[in-house]
Design a binder for these strands. Sequence first.
DNA 1: AAACGAGGCGCC
DNA 2: AAAGGGCGCCTCGTTT
Length: 569
Amino acid sequence: MRIAVVEGADGSGLLQAIAEDGTPAGPVERAADLAAAVGRREAAGRPRWVWAATGELYPRLLAAGVRVDRCHDLALTEGILLAADGRWGEPRSFPAAWARLEGRPVPDGTAPAPRPGQPALFDHDLPGLPDGPELLAATVAVHAGQQRRLAAGAGGVRGTAGVVPRGAGPGGLGLLVAAESAGALAAAEMAAAGLPWRPEVHDAVLTELLGPRPRPGAAPGRLRDLTERIGAAFGQPLNPDSPAQVLRAFAAAGTPLPSTRSQVLRGVDHPAVPLLLAYKELSRLHAAYGWSWLDTWVAGGRFRPEYVPGGVVSGRWATRGGGALQIPHALRRAVVADPGWTLVVADASQLEPRVLAALSGDVGLARAAAGGDLYAALAADAFGGDRARAKTALLAAMYGGDVGQLMTVLRRRFPAAVDYVEAAARTGEDGGLVRSILGRTSPPPSQGWLTAVDRAGGPDPDAAEGARARRAARDRGRFTRNFVVQASAADWALVLLAAVRRHLTGPNGPHLVFFQHDEVVVHCPREEADRVVAALSDAAEESRRLVFGDTAVRFPLAVAVVDCYADAK
DNA sequence: AAACGAGGCGCC
DNA sequence: AAAGGGCGCCTCGTTT
C-alpha cells in the first residue's frame, strides 16, 4: 500500500491511499495533525509514503517523533528518470514534474533551493501551486506518471549490462528509486540525530596544533609564528596564503616554480619549504574546521550537517555547509560515543575495484576480488607480487591516466575488466551516455563540449581548435570511464545504507549517524554492538545480491566497534 | 561591497 | 616509479 501526502498550513495535511500503479485507492483524508496521522498509518501498515520531497516534509515528522519505513520521493525520482532519458538539465522539482505532466511551462529549475524548516510547497512565490486537494491530486498524478515510466523502462534502461555499460543490472531503476528514497529518509534521520561531537576534544586538538584560541579574526599563534619564520627564510615578509606572493618569493630566490602546491614544494630544497608545508596544513585546519566551524556546526554535543542525497552526478551524496564529507582525520578524535554507547564503524574495503570486477564479469578480477586483499591477489596473479604496481594499474584503469606497460599487463590478464572501462571511455569521448549498474545515467556533454567538438569537425579547423576538441573528448572519456565505476559503487553503498537502516530501530536504539560514500557509522548502546555488527554484514551481503546478483565478487566490510571514531582503522 | 574564477587541499 | 575521477570550502585577486 502507498499513501500520497501533502502538507498544509499549521501542521495539517491531506492523505490518500493509492495503488502501486498510482491509481487512487481510497478517499482523501484531511488531517488536522499530519504527523499524528502519518504515525497512525505507519503503525497500522507500514505503507510507502509518496511525497514531493523528503527533505522538506520528513524533518518536521521526525521533530514530532514520527519515523517512517519507506517512501517514494518524487523529486529525487524525477531526477533519476530525466537523467535516464538524457534530459539532464531539466528541472526535477515536484512543481516542474507536475508542470511537465500537464504540458504547462516548466518553472525554472535553478531555484528554488530547499529552505530547511520552510514548507516550500506552500510558498506562493512558486507559480501554479495551489493548496489542498489539487496539490494532492497532482502528487498522485506525478507519482502515477513516474510509475508508468519506470515500468516502461525509462531511457530504454532494462535488461542486464553487457560489455558496453548501459545499465540496468539486477534491481534496476526500481531498486535505485527505492534506495534513493530510503537514503533521503536516512539523511533526514541522521541530520536529526547528529553525529556525537565533543567540542572540548575538538578545542584541545586545535589548541595543541595551533595554539590557544585567538580572538575572532586573528590568526592563531602557531600560524603567526610560521608566517614570521617564512618571511625570515625569504628575507622579506609575505602572506603565505597568497600563491602569487609565494611564487614571486621563490623566483626571487632563484627557484621559479609552476605552482605552490605541496606536491611541487616537496621537491624543492629551500629553508622555507617545511615551514610553508606546515603552514598550509594548519591554516587549512584552522580555516575550514577551526573554532568558528565548531561554533557554527556543533551544538548540544552533536554535529548536524545537511546531507544532499543524490547531490553528485554519480549518485554520491553532497552536503550543504559543514563539510561533513571531508572531516579531517585529526578531528575524528572529537567524535566520541555517549556514555554507555559505542560507535560501530563499517567501511567497504577496496570498493571500486570490486565493483569493476562485478560490473565487467571479468573472471580473473572476480577471482582476485573473491577474498580479502584484492590488490595483493592481483599482484600475485599478474604483477610478480608487486602490490603497489597492481594498485597503480587498476586505479589508472578506473580513473584514466597513462601508466604505459602496466596497462598492457592488465589488458592481457583481465581483458573483460579493461574492455568495460575502455568502452565507457569511448562512449564518453563520442559524446554518449553511460549508466551505473542500476541505471543511474551520466549527464550528456555540455554545450561548450559540443561546440568544441563541432568546430574541430567543421571546415578547416585550426590546430588550436583540434587540440581543444581532442582534450575535451579525452577529458569526457575519463569522466565516463570513472562514472560507471563510481556510480555503481554509489548504487551499492546506497542500497547498503537502506538495508542497514531497515535493521536498526531509531533514535533510542542503534541508529545511523554518518554516511560517507563507502562508510557508515552507527551509534548504539554498548550491549547491542554485536547485533549491529551482524546486521551490517547482512546488509552488505544483501546489497551485493540486489545490485550485482549472481557474482563471485565479495564486498567485505571492515567493521570496528570503538568509542572514538579516530580509533576505527 | 558583492560576485566570481583560480589556486589549493581536505575527504572518498 | 608510475596517475586521476568526484565533491566542498577556504583565500586571494580581479571584475562588476
